[in-house]
């Protein structure tokens, strides 16, 4: 994954968001051991302190847990992961519908558009 940051928002918040997506999407598997803070920081090319802060945040959310001697692991709590996935989806849809509204497309119309384009979702992303 490419870590591209928007300098206008706190980096650790963006890291939390990115890592959260990695976990709920299954790119980081349940129960998988995370690399060390330093390694993660290097991969993302950020300050280890910032990465540490992001991990603390994820830990508070419960997505990551620490085993005292072995390091950090991705949670095995599928329910939690699913909940967060749902929350994320809701957030994105809300934002999407909001955007649609801004260009004068109602919720119902948006659904129609989505159904129409659904079969060619890749086409859309490439647009």
């Amino acid at each position: 994954m490419d870590y591209i940051f928007d300098n206008e928002r706190p980096i650790y918040i963006q890291l939390v968001e990115m890592l959260r997506i990695e976990i709920v999407s299954g790119k980081m598997k349940q129960g998988e051991r995370l690399p060390s803070v330093r390694e993660l920081a290097l991969i993302a090319r950020v300050n280890p302190n910032t990465m540490q802060k992001a991990l603390v945040e994820l830990e508070e959310e419960g997505l990551v847990y620490t085993e005292r001697t072995n390091g950090k692991f991705v949670t095995t709590n599928s329910e939690l992961i699913n909940n967060i996935k749902k929350e994320l989806a809701q957030e994105k849809i809300k934002k999407f519908l909001n955007d649609m509204e801004n260009i004068g497309i109602t919720c119902d119309e948006a659904i129609v558009y989505l159904q129409k384009l659904g079969g060619d979702i890749n086409g859309i992303t490439r647009m």
């Binding site: 928007d6 300098n7 206008e8 928002r9 706190p10 980096i11 650790y12 918040i13 910032t50």
Partner: peptide, 15 residues
């Protein structure tokens, strides 16, 4: 702190 400043000013440090 860089992040506090970003949150407060809603802009990049550069900006």
């Amino acid at each position: 702190s860089a992040d506090e400043l970003r949150t407060k000013e809603k802009a990049s440090i550069d900006e």
